[in-house]
């Protein structure tokens, strides 16, 4: 395989809440993302999946560990050059398209903000052209640039969020639950759009979600998180056809199949997480690219 685009090694993210209480949100997580692939992160709420995304894009300062992106170290202190490289080449799509778009700005200015900051155009005309093109790419029309976020439906707003990420031509997009707030029929539209864009631009996705059937559909490789630990990672095929970790097994068994006769005979496996001790477990290789914390 080629060189990884993103390499996360032994990432720890702790939040000090008070003098004697620290939330250990992420503990020693390591994974890689290769150019043009989709890596899915799944886990229950509170498992640390959103925190990992935010630590990688440096909305948080990682407590410990190393993050290498595009051959540069992006953990720890950032110099100006690295920060500019990071801000241009890594973008994020947020969960709630309403609260992540500034209601006082026109769509064109929301999308163009990154272009303005990085000076990626030489004339006003060029700026408008870039914005118009990107709007068309996500299935809106260039005329929409003059409108405000409240004039759009939820699905359209999420398209604006995607356009804002895409306009920088990033190499990695972190999609944090970007379809969970949308209606089912709109989810399929957005997922199809994300796939088309990946085919065109070869960007990589870190796809964070709790909906396993959608994660399976879009991801090449998957990481399963529980209580801040990466308990299992491997190709989508490996995880779904041969889950090794008991937590993964229980998670997969709990996803309801949209098939009544099959579903009515399935029983979810229970997983007792009250006395697990992940800290003393180690990552073991169980398949080609398949690892589990055992």
């Amino acid at each position: 395989m080629s060189e990884p685009l993103l390499k996360v090694e032994n990432l720890y993210q702790h939040f000090k809440v008070s003098r004697n209480f620290t939330v250990k949100a992420v503990n020693g997580v390591s994974f890689e993302i290769y150019p043009g692939e989709t890596y899915g992160l799944v886990g229950e709420s509170g498992s640390g999946k959103t925190t990992i995304g935010r630590s990688i894009i440096r909305l948080y300062d990682p407590t410990a560990g190393e993050i290498i992106f595009n051959h540069r170290k992006i953990s720890g202190e950032l110099d100006r050059k690295t920060r500019r490289m990071l801000r241009k080449n890594m973008q994020m799509i947020f969960q709630d398209p309403m609260s992540s778009l500034n209601p006082r700005k026109k769509i064109g200015d929301i999308i163009g903000e990154g272009l303005d900051i990085h000076g990626l155009y030489s004339s006003k005309k060029e700026r408008n052209n870039i914005i118009g093109e990107i709007l068309e790419k996500v299935g809106l029309s260039p005329a929409h640039a003059e409108r405000y976020p409240h004039q759009f439906s939820g699905g359209q707003r999420q398209r604006v969020g995607i356009a804002r990420a895409l306009v920088m031509k990033p190499r990695l997009i972190i999609a944090d639950e970007c379809i969970s707030a949308l209606d089912v029929s709109i989810q399929a539209q957005v997922v199809n759009l994300m796939k088309d864009i990946q085919a065109q631009t070869q960007c990589a996705y870190l796809f964070i979600a709790h909906d396993l059937s959608m994660v399976k559909y879009i991801s090449d490789r998957i990481g399963v998180l529980h209580l801040g630990y990466l308990v299992e990672t491997g190709s989508t095929q490996e995880i779904f056809s041969n889950p090794v970790h008991p937590y993964t097994k229980s998670l997969l068994s709990a996803v309801p199949y949209p098939n009544p006769r099959v579903e009515k005979n399935r029983r979810p496996l229970l997983y007792d997480s009250s006395n697990v001790n992940y800290a003393s477990a180690t990552m073991k290789q169980v398949g080609d690219t398949h690892f589990a914390l055992l």
Binding site: S153, G154, S185, Q187, A188, F240
Partner: peptide
Amino acid sequence: WGLLSAMPDLETQDARLYSIPGSP
């Protein structure tokens, strides 16, 4: 049809999901 295929079953391997265009 659209509702059913918008949620991929665990065997869906098609390149695209059949989706309903537009919004309600």
